[in-house]
């Protein structure tokens, strides 16, 4: 999967992983917009398991509250690693 750029619509993974993840439950399986590329870091989910892994892009992804919670007129911007994203929306 090629890196995403600002403005891209993306969908987050919906699976509930067995171990630690920095993809918050409320933002799983949701569609949002990349608002900024925030550098490159090893995936925290892997580091929590003691794995040494290569850095990957990290993005600020903005979601409409309505798409996450079914209500609300605000937005929530979550910082997600590339692997937290299933693909383009």
């Amino acid at each position: 999967m090629t890196p995403f750029a600002t403005g891209d619509r993306v969908r987050t993974r919906s699976a509930d992983p067995a171990g630690h993840t920095r993809l918050p439950r409320y933002a799983r399986g949701a569609t949002g917009t990349v608002v900024q590329v925030a550098g490159s870091h090893p995936l925290a989910d892997d580091r929590a398991r003691g794995l040494v892994v290569d850095p990957q892009p990290v993005y600020h992804v903005r979601f409409a509250a309505r798409d996450l919670f079914g209500a609300g007129d605000h937005t929530v911007t979550v910082e997600l690693w590339h692997d937290h994203l299933e693909g383009p929306a």
Binding site: L23, P24, A44, V58, H60, T75, T77, E79, L80
Partner: peptide, 12 residues
């Protein structure tokens, strides 16, 4: 007034 919540879920 729009409200933007930022969740510090990663390195920033």
């Amino acid at each position: 007034t729009r409200i933007s919540v930022w969740d510090a879920s990663a390195e920033s």
